[in-house]
Design a protein around this nucleic acid. Sequence first.
DNA 1: AGTTTGACAGACTAGTTGGTTTGTTATTAA
DNA 2: TTAATAACAAACCAACTAGTCTGTCAAACT
Lengths: 218, 218
Amino acid sequence: MTVDVKKMACDTVDKSADKLSTRNADVTRQKILDTAFEEILLKGYQGLRVDGVLKKTGLTKGAFYHHFVSKKELGHAVIDEVLRPWIYERWITPLQNIEHSIDGLIELLKEARDEMTACELHTGCPLNNLTQEMSPLDESFRTRIVAIWDEWHQALAELLERGQRLQQVKTSLKPKNVARFLIATMEGIIGQCKCYMSDAAFYDAGECLQDYLESLRA
Amino acid sequence: MTVDVKKMACDTVDKSADKLSTRNADVTRQKILDTAFEEILLKGYQGLRVDGVLKKTGLTKGAFYHHFVSKKELGHAVIDEVLRPWIYERWITPLQNIEHSIDGLIELLKEARDEMTACELHTGCPLNNLTQEMSPLDESFRTRIVAIWDEWHQALAELLERGQRLQQVKTSLKPKNVARFLIATMEGIIGQCKCYMSDAAFYDAGECLQDYLESLRA
DNA sequence: AGTTTGACAGACTAGTTGGTTTGTTATTAA
DNA sequence: TTAATAACAAACCAACTAGTCTGTCAAACT
């Protein structure tokens, strides 16, 4: 196999940076995915309009249906390729970098509160939004979504188990139950913020959540 | 003002019971409201179809637009006349009948868990559903919804304050914060159940919630 | 009894929506 | 260089959807 230098240059330079205005399948597809994610975040999957995504991206029907066979498949792709990585980056990976379970969780809680921008305040958690909307409506969505919750739940439970082994966390409590409780509480608080369009709920309920986390110490 | 006995009889007997098959504005309107509530519970407001309600009720466009000027007004009416009373009956009024704050809340929690039918499991809480869907989309919905949350929150905070006065609840904690925390947690747990289509989350996280409630005792 | 009015019935409409089809152009393999 | 194909552009379509309009019929009013 021969290597063409000009072709290499084309692949690396042109495709990723220069050729923004010309054709690039990967960029186009990603643009659709990102825009759809934003739209779903604001209006839900049912409120998402294919035409709306096209208008926002400046693309056409031809481009869209070249990359996705249907709106439903777009929804699946958004979950797999945008939502899931987003949850990992924001909620799951940080758990794995925690040294002291309780201290780390309290720190994470504060970070989440402070990072909550005005925009996020009234859009809420994308995973929970989609869960509440789509779980009863479509099984293919629900199974994808439930898998993400499970990954998050497991990572949190493992953090607590680790804390127990390191004598940081009370051994009397059940990591899986506490993990479920913490996830539910976090999502519940974010949901309240969304409704009030204010982070006051996060500060108010957050105090109690912190007290609860303190009560878990060994 | 004269009172016609025959007219009285007509008003009370015929309209409310006998004349089920003939015209009765109140019954028709209520039938639309109840059906719309069910539809919203399952598919959300955006998924609600006027035609769908008509099909389920056996009514027609004429009947619908005689009682409601638009789909949006129907949504408002469902919130005011069905959802709000439902929340009161199920969550707020029971709070007011509690004697011992902590014991009563734990009891209420268990009742909620046991009363959770298979249907409710995958529909979730109607108030929270509508909150998550409509808060970012329509201000007229959000204000109506937020008022209900406030009423619930206040009733719960009052229960805790009462508990403090009666030496049942620690005086160190802030009733409003705890009330917000409890509501958020409850809704978060119900939301998890909806996704898993199982009450396991309710039992798992419920254990922790009970522990938390116990920790509030004076 | 006759008139008015409230409570519908149901055909119709204009705009939207997901999806199709046909054509065009840039890119790539031969 | 050329043929093939991937990546679109855009007109088009059928189904759906909220809302309208005209007509009907039963009950209340006079």
